[in-house]
Design a protein around this nucleic acid. Structure first.
Lengths: 224, 224
DNA sequence: TCTGCAAAGATAGTAATACTATCACGAGTA
DNA sequence: TACTCGTGATAGTATTACTATCTTTGCAGA
């Protein structure tokens, strides 16, 4: 049996829905590769067009500009991640174990999900680490936020926040702790890879250390 | 009596030392204003030249490109912040109080420091929140790191890491906890201002809440 | 006072980026 | 048959990110 996973995206993010055509799917597929390869600053629609074998104008029919495309990609990632977290933790009754498993999903690399042929999740995870925050670190966050572009991130944050409250209903900072887990999972990973002196994992360079750090941090914080 | 504070910067960051001439100081002064006003992506040397009343070529004599200028500015900030942390905590003997005070420095806005006439620290603090991470989130981090561009950040991280160890010599993640404090102080601040649903401080929008959250997090984490 | 040199100003030019616009073509549909 | 939809092809513009060169200004030393 074949599966396919479809995530409904905010329509304001694109001019034409990239999931509905071959060219659209190629734009997503190749942009993930190209952003990972060149970094977001050095990534252009011209280069993307050449990689796909289409023209610049073709890309502009789908996305207004490369920043919208970045937001699309990151929003997709948050939606996909929340889906995974919910799916794979829903049968866990112990809230502590549930939160522990969720943290693992947030802080661990992924294999490519075969249900989504036009997205390589393992490269996407790397992009989120290096480029993800650039989606909202702009002068137009407020407008973008009004257009609900960051809803998937907020939803994930709310979900994790509720898991935290299930462990300790009196904990005062569930959302801030949720974003701390998510952001630090990425930042510590980036530092570990590129600026190891800023972490305690420079020697082993192993993701499991980040996981240990985050678990230690979270479960001490919410201890009753 | 007048004070003046001088921070020695990595010479590879500039082509001509901006602290030694009027034009150089203006470049720093106006670039901080302009980056704050327009955001880093929309900030150009052309616009900076017009703001100062000089020419583009004039700016290029001091800085290779706008990214080097951003690194310069952020590195300056980290150096200045570490100086402040060390200066204002050195007379505190209780390690807990010392760390508490340090966290306060990391998580609180500043007034403009009159000892540095060409830098507006209060705007600079806002820039670090919104643009700071862009200094290292690039494809050329490794080369930049080899040139020691991030040493001031690492030094600050090491200093805070030692404060943490003074509180609990057995704590396993002093550096990662230090970067967590620093990064989350900024990210929670940004979220509180622009994406309040990602924090627990959306209503009050008060920095003191971030401080409470961070203290709670840190002192639970290092409790023996 | 003359000489020299460094900083800054003035101007020009180039390749790439970030778009916008227009026209043409082929496939599927009514 | 006509129509429209997605795509391709091509062209054009303003801005960005530089590099180069030539001139002027001011001050420092001989």
């Amino acid at each position: 049996m074949e599966y396919s996973l479809n995530i409904k995206m905010n329509e304001k993010l694109f001019l034409r829905n990239p999931e509905q055509t071959d060219l659209g799917k190629n734009i997503i597929l190749f942009s993930i590769q190209l952003i990972h390869e060149k970094g977001f600053e050095d990534f252009t629609f011209k280069k993307l067009a050449v990689a796909i074998g289409t023209t610049e104008a073709g890309i502009y029919r789908y996305f207004e500009n490369k920043h919208k495309l970045l937001i699309y990609i990151t929003a997709w990632y948050w939606s996909w991640l929340e889906f995974r977290v919910i799916t794979y933790t829903e049968n866990i009754s112990d809230p502590i174990e549930k939160l522990r498993k969720a943290i693992k999903f947030l802080a661990t690399s992924v294999e490519d999900d075969i249900r989504t042929s036009h997205v390589n999740e393992s490269i996407l995870h790397q992009i989120i680490i290096s480029e993800g925050s650039k989606a909202y670190l702009t002068k137009h966050v407020t407008e973008d936020n009004q257009d609900q572009f960051f809803k998937p991130y907020k939803d994930l944050c709310a979900t994790i926040g509720n898991y935290i409250l299930d462990c300790n209903p009196d904990y005062k900072y569930p959302r801030s702790l949720a974003t701390t887990i998510i952001e630090m999972a990425h930042i510590q990973n980036f530092f570990m890879q590129h600026l190891p002196a800023l972490t305690d994992f420079g020697k082993s360079k192993s993701e499991s250390n980040i996981l240990d750090f985050l678990e230690d941090l979270v479960f001490h914080a919410i201890k009753k």
